[in-house]
């Protein structure tokens, strides 16, 4: 609960952040909303020598329409995503999921970029990014890289963002007027999901699972089945393919897989309403 000593610097722009990352090296961490990083620091599970505060980079906090995409700046707070009319219209799944993160305090601090880069398999927004087929825009000293969501999440708390890089934006293809649902199973309203299912229907469907693997999990076989117009029972039959759910006080592997099926079925019922 008492973090180790660290230095603090403020980045004023993306270029400045990249310069500071290069200057401070491996021991530095970007600080966005701090709602994943600071708890780890307080438990001394993470002890960065320097925090580079990027929250003052105004240019990274926005939501805009760009042709067939909605682009969200990495530092946009969950609460702004939740309430955005643009997101609600074209990406209702993403707006809804943003509103399911933690509690209002958390949503007013946490950023979409921070949630994605943290790469927690139990987090909500990574599943929304996977189900909607988002693309991450990452900038480093060698310029910009664009990474599809399904290639972005590598392992437990590990993403494709390399040391020295910063996630600047997330491009979501529009899913206007398409069915969607998010089913989050929790014991307390403010908790991380025991299991979650993000379902996007429409022309580019996808289904992603929360807390069912060592990383945010795109249910590929199920997504393909949905794309082919398979019956729900066929989707359910493959929903747990390639999952690797954790066991903890709340759930066994068997129970999680059962929940994944139940929640997927419910997601279909909700999405088609």
């Amino acid at each position: 609960m008492i973090p180790a000593q660290f230095d603090y610097v403020e980045a004023t722009s993306v270029a400045d952040a990249i310069r500071l990352l290069a200057e401070h090296g491996d021991e530095a961490k970007l600080l966005a909303g701090g709602h994943s990083l600071i708890p780890l620091m307080k438990l001394r599970l993470v002890t960065p020598a320097t925090l580079i505060d990027v929250t003052h980079i105004k240019e990274l906090s926005y939501i805009k329409e760009d042709g067939n995409n909605i682009v969200i700046g990495a530092l946009t707070r969950h609460r702004d995503v939740e309430l955005s009319e643009l997101v609600k219209k074209h990406l209702p799944l993403v707006a809804h999921v943003a509103g399911e993160v933690g509690d209002p305090q958390v949503r007013n601090r946490g950023t979409i970029g921070g949630s994605l880069v943290h790469g927690d398999p139990a987090a909500d927004l990574p599943a929304a990014a996977l189900a909607t087929g988002a693309t991450m825009v990452v900038v480093g000293q060698n310029g910009e890289r664009r990474i599809a969501a399904q290639d972005f999440f590598i392992d437990f708390l590990e993403t494709a963002v390399q040391p020295g890089e910063i996630l600047t934006a997330i491009e979501f293809p529009k899913h206007t007027n398409a069915g969607w649902a998010y089913e989050k199973f929790v014991r307390r309203a403010m908790d991380y999901a025991i299991v979650g299912v993000a379902l996007q229907l429409g022309s580019q469907p996808g289904v992603a699972l929360v807390n069912m693997s060592n990383k945010p999990h795109l249910a590929e076989s199920a997504s393909q089945a949905i794309a082919k117009g398979a019956a729900i029972s066929d989707v359910l039959a493959v929903i747990n393919n390639n999952t690797n759910p954790p066991e903890d006080l709340n759930a066994t592997v068997e129970y999680r897989q059962h929940l994944a099926r139940v929640l997927t079925q419910r997601a279909f019922a909700t999405a088609s309403k």
């Binding site: 509690d103 014991r187 307390r188 309203a189 403010m190 908790d191 006080l249």
Partner: peptide, 27 residues
């Protein structure tokens, strides 16, 4: 919700408020 649990070796399994579930008003 609440149960302070130990593993057989005496290590608490609910040593943070992520695992020791104190309900909030919304629950």
């Amino acid at each position: 919700y609440e149960h302070m649990l130990y593993d057989p070796s005496g290590v608490p399994r609910t040593s943070t408020l992520m695992d020791y579930l104190v309900p909030a008003a919304s629950d």
